[in-house]
C-alpha cells in the first residue's frame, strides 16, 4: 500500500526528532515549522534527510529539489515525496 501524505509526515517527523532534535517535545514540531530557513536544520542535516527519503521510499530526488523551496517544512517534504512515488 502506498504511503499517504499524512504517513510520510509522521515518518519524517519521527526521523527528524530522533536524529536532529533529541529531547524535543513532539508538539513543538508541526507541519509548518520552518526547518531550513530558520536554522533548525543545517546543510548536513538536509543532505541526510534527502538520503533517508530516497532509501525509505525508493525514490531519487533531483539536485535542484534539494533546496529549502522543497524541503523547508514537513508539509513540503511530504508533498515532494508524494509527487515522486505517485504512479506515473
Amino acid at each position: 500500500m502506498q504511503a499517504t501524505e499524512a504517513d510520510i509526515k509522521e515518518t519524517v517527523k519521527d526521523y527528524i526528532l530522533s536524529e536532529f532534535l533529541p529531547g524535543e517535545s513532539p508538539d513543538a514540531l508541526d507541519d509548518s515549522t520552518l526547518l531550513i530557513t530558520s536554522g533548525v536544520l543545517d546543510s548536513i542535516a538536509t543532505v541526510k534527510i534527502v538520503s533517508f527519503l530516497e532509501e525509505k521510499y525508493g525514490i531519487e530526488l533531483e539536485a535542484h529539489e534539494l533546496s529549502p523551496e522543497y524541503l523547508n517544512t514537513l508539509s513540503d517534504i511530504a508533498r515532494l515525496v508524494t509527487a515522486r512515488i505517485a504512479p506515473k
Binding site: 532534535l21 533529541p22 524535543e24 513543538a28 514540531l29 530558520s38 536554522g39 533548525v40
Partner: peptide, 16 residues
Amino acid sequence: SVIEMKQFCAENLPMY
C-alpha cells in the same frame, strides 16, 4: 524548546 533555541542561535550566530 529545542527548536526555539536553534532558531535563536541561527539568528545570532553563523550556522556552523
